[in-house]
Computed example of a mutant assay.
Amino acid sequence: MGRAWIGFVMLCFCFIPSSVRAGKAACHNPMFGSCYGVQHNCPAACPILCEVDCRLCKPFCACDKPGAVCQDPRFIGGDGIMFYFHGRKDKDFCLVSDPKLHINAHFIGKKSKKGRDFTWVQSIGILFGHHQFYLGARTVSKWQDSTENMLIQLNGEHIMLPNEEGKTWKSPETVLVIQRLADTNNVKVKVEGLFEIAARVVPITPEESRVHGYDVTEEDCFAHLELNFKFESISKMVDGVLGQTYRPDYRSLVKMTAPMPVMGGADKFASSHLFATDCAVSNFGKRKEEGEDGTPLRVECGSRYGGKGILCKR
């Protein structure tokens, strides 16, 4: 079996991302001549921000791909099943924990009249090897697309990436590479052989606030992250809110018939801080890095965009 990317919707196991623009998107890969440069209106489900599958020449919502973490946090697991995990505001939770990789998320939010917090992912802390990588959204009162509201750090040092689509930054001491997918607030982070993450900083819009009853004021638009994860190689012992959905033996316990299928278990995923590995399901640094058959877990998936599920072969 050739290399397979986990948690990434593909057709013919090939996906070519586009650049992203408000309300419209286009394929920017010249290999696809008939689609290259053609502007598409974003789908109704994501009217402001979308991407284009250059092979199909169709726009789609990035938040509908397996490995997505968006909105109030809405997850699409590695098994293709959609669920919500609300956590708690101003707390940290383990998203992925594997012997070579650990990812925590910091949740921001506010109280609601529904008896729970409205929450969003404000930042992520990634541990790999002896390195700590931070990516987060700054606190913003009035949102402007042209302003950079993303903060990036590696081992405590700020990373300054030119505000120009396509620009890249490579770490001199690691294999980490960051690329701008738009002039501001949209990047791809990759560590060869381990993970790739597309990250966008977005605000809560007045319309979203009105429809969902967030009651967001002009003092804080609750800028947060929308994330798409894919993992090149993870073990069969992977855990975490998102990570557990990639295990071969995982069976979702969320009630899919509910209007909002919610995953519980916040206590076992809770971490003491963004770079802590003390959640109850932590596997980071453990010696057992391979599955029972001696090979890392790899998954090949195929699906059509827009659905809630995905067919995967393990």
Rank of each mutant, 00 (worst) to 15 (best):
C301M: 10
L127D: 02
H158Q: 12
S171Y: 12
K113N: 10
V52Y: 02
K286F: 01
V69Y: 00
T295Y: 07
Y305M: 06
W5Q: 13
F222A: 10
R180M: 07
R88A: 11
L101A: 03
I103M: 15
V299I: 13
E192M: 12
K190V: 15
N228A: 05
I16H: 11
Q122R: 15
I16G: 09
R304W: 06
A270Y: 04
F275H: 01
F107S: 06
N186M: 13
D183W: 12
P162C: 13
K255D: 15
C301D: 00
S18V: 05
I159Q: 06
M260A: 14
E208V: 13
G264I: 05
Q122P: 03
T168A: 10
K111T: 14
E290R: 04
K308Y: 08
A182L: 10
F118N: 04
A182C: 10
F128D: 03
R21E: 15
H86S: 10
E148N: 15
V191P: 02
Y305N: 07
A62C: 10
C46D: 03
T168I: 10
K286A: 02
C35T: 01
E51W: 12
I124N: 03
I16E: 11
G307T: 14
A68H: 02
D117K: 10
I126F: 06
S141C: 13
R74T: 09
L311R: 04
L56N: 08
G78C: 13
T174E: 15
C54K: 05
D267H: 04
M263V: 08
Y84H: 15
V216Q: 07
V96T: 03
H102E: 04
V69P: 02
V9L: 11
L181S: 12
G109E: 02
R116I: 09
